[in-house]
Amino acid sequence: MKVLVTVKEVTTIEDGFEIEGTKISEKYLSTDLNEWDDYAIEEAVQLQEEGIADEIVTVTIGPEECEETIRKALAKGANRAVRVWDDTLEDTDLLDVSITSEILRAVVEDEDPDLVLMGVQAADDNFGATGVFLAKDIGYNWAAVVNHLEHDFEDGVATVRRELESGVEEYTDIELPAVLTIQTGINEPRYASLRGIRQAQRKDLNCKDFVDLSINKDSIESRLSLTEMYEPESESDVVIWEGDAEKTAFQLSELLREKGVVG
């Protein structure tokens, strides 16, 4: 079985960040492998260790700078990586899920995987929509928010548990080929070993643009436009204590005393 794992490099923002227009100032930004995708990679690697997956390919839409993140996924055990980028994307916000999906679809058509593992959501945009959108796009079956996957795939069926709200899990069978969006906690993502990191440097990282993937540039136009970005206005009248820990801890312990928690 061939497994395709989507890997997004997400931006993270540091404390005290500033917003300029509809962007966060560069100096407060760093990047990371999307937390949810880390769990998807681990699930694929476990499938390979058990002899179920023959090949794990990762796909990332992103500029050259995100190759470090891609190498991380390779170091954890993926066999090779595809990175898609095109000049057209330089000034497109990937806000419209259909654009991401259209690009990923081209890669799925190239690779023809049996199983596509994605994250429930990206930690930066928090859309939570790309997996199901893509599944419909490529005509695969799907399940969203999977927190357990049986590894036997009897008769070409994936048996999963979907995590619903308030501690309820749903048992579902899905015919392959399928897209699963993976929830955190499904496994324990490994750290890359030194050997893995060394090997990752030699693994195949293939870059493709829209011409390679026969994607029509004209179809890449976001129907969503980001017009404002700001810090949420606080409605609360929170009492904030800051400064020396001795002092703030005392203030809190006084409050707890008033409330009868501390005798």
């Binding site: 404390d15 609360s236 929170v238 904030i240 204590w241 800051e242 400064g243 809190l252």
Partner: peptide, 26 residues
Amino acid sequence: TDPNAPIMDIADYAIRGDLFEVIPKL
């Protein structure tokens, strides 16, 4: 440690500080 953490919006009281300093004192 982060004054912009969304938890601040629903908190009644907050210590802006390092838990590793505050908790032992508390």
